[in-house]
Amino acid sequence: MGDILALTVEHLMLSAAGVGLALVVGIPLAILITRYRTLAGFTMAVTDVLQTIPSMALLAALMIYLGLGNQTLVVTLMIYSLLPIVRNTYTGITGIDKGLIEAGKGMGMTRWQLLRMVQIPVALPVIMAGIRVAMVTAIGIATLGVLIGGGGLGAPIWRGMQIVDSSMILSGAIPAALIAILCEFGLAKLEKAVTPRGMKASSPAKS
């Protein structure tokens, strides 16, 4: 099947689109709730609940509003990616040593400068770990996209299941598993690369 490659690329793009949207929505949201802590509990509860809705049910429900097609799939993926991204960004930023925040403020950083120079860089490894989890989850869930008229590697898997053709199932399942592993691996590498030497785990930064 020559178009397996095309399907794989499409699958990856759809997953990335879902996670990308979740980043655009989730990171500002997480930063917002670090400033207005009263909103934090509520927001976390909502993202938690969203996460527990079975993916088939969420797809079906969204389909009613958004119709058949990739847009419904991408929005579903975004919703599932929201939790790891919001949670990790939030805990990453709020978990920062109080001393760093006080030092930054006391030296005359504005809130924005504090965020850009200290909070985001220090929380970045944790945020990256959230993105990694989101991406791997999204790749898995995207195989269901075919049920609501979306593309990606779901098509050969489901068709194979209907005609009981295991080689057809595997032609979709194996590339899906492979890109999940590659993403996991690649993002782990990236996570290391964006962690400054001063924050590497071997000798945790004392502050």
């Binding site: 001393g99 760093l100 030092a103 930054g104 006391g106 005359g108 004392k206 502050s207």
Partner: peptide, 19 residues
């Protein structure tokens, strides 16, 4: 913010930025 930039501040926990 301007005031703090004019005043040196050393906190108890040192608070050097690890990044």
């Amino acid at each position: 913010v301007a005031l703090r930039r004019e005043i040196g501040y050393v906190i108890q926990q040192i608070g050097l930025f690890p990044n």
